[in-house]
Amino acid sequence: METEETINNWGQLCSDEMISPDIFGSGRPLNRESFTIRIFLMTLSLLTLYALFTMDYQGVDIAKATMDTLHNFKIIFMEPSTQRLGLWDAFYEVLITLGLAFLTTLFGGVIALFLGLLSAQNLAPRRITCCIKSFVAFIRAIPTILWVLIFAVAAGLGSAAAVIGMTFHSISYLTKAYSESFEELDRNVIEALSASGANWWQIVFQAVIPSSAAYLLSWTFMRFEINFANAIAMGAAAGAAGIGFDLFMAGGYYFDLKEVGLITYIVLAFAIVLEMIATHMKSNIHQKA
């Protein structure tokens, strides 16, 4: 008798029974999760319908617009060519963009290495790690482009602002990645070395960095790829030179879709090469690890 009562009580705590399964007339059992999902989907579809009926098209013919867009795509991707920009120039501009990415990753990596050490829980006191981690999280929450524009106030639009802003964001990203790699190393190993008289710097360079080197390399290269993409965008948005600026000029000022196509292909080629190098490096690391 007593057992039955308890089981009954448990049953009532379960949310399944709180909501009657027949609200929507379906035979399927309804728990809180699927109920929430249903409400969410219904709200979304209602909003979509409302938006479709009340949108102001300003006389745009949807069919014609779609055709024109496809036509533009055809020009961009099928007939890439160049009038102003020589192939060699384009290549040189990509090198500038790569340089921008390299410089910001290098600055970011070096600074993040030290911040990462200070924000790894097995290496630094809790108060410092918390401070640095929340500070970096704050930087990371704001997009790179905003940091570039913020620094543009002081440095003026151009490469200087782009380098500072992108470095800033790289630092925050890499600090988090690095510190998590450092935390992989067991606290006990650090204890063992400090018990033999080694000091903090020696432990860091003899144990912590050697054991996380593979991760560090992999994260740094990842950030380099991100910075390459960012550097293109910064060229366009912040006037930081490089291939992004040419893309911006070709598309925004000369309406030269063929050149836009060519630049897109060049960037794509470089991105693929970077990706291939990264994959190769990662497979090497996995073999070693």
Binding site: D186, V189, A198, N199, A207, P210
Partner: peptide, 27 residues
């Protein structure tokens, strides 16, 4: 409590770090 990714000799030499200056140990 060894550093798994390092070789035996490197791990053994870690025992000497306490005798070294910071710089020599770091390098």
């Amino acid at each position: 409590n060894l550093v798994d990714r390092l070789t035996v000799i490197e791990n053994v030499l870690h025992g000497r770090l306490g005798y070294k200056s910071t710089m020599a140990g770091v390098l």
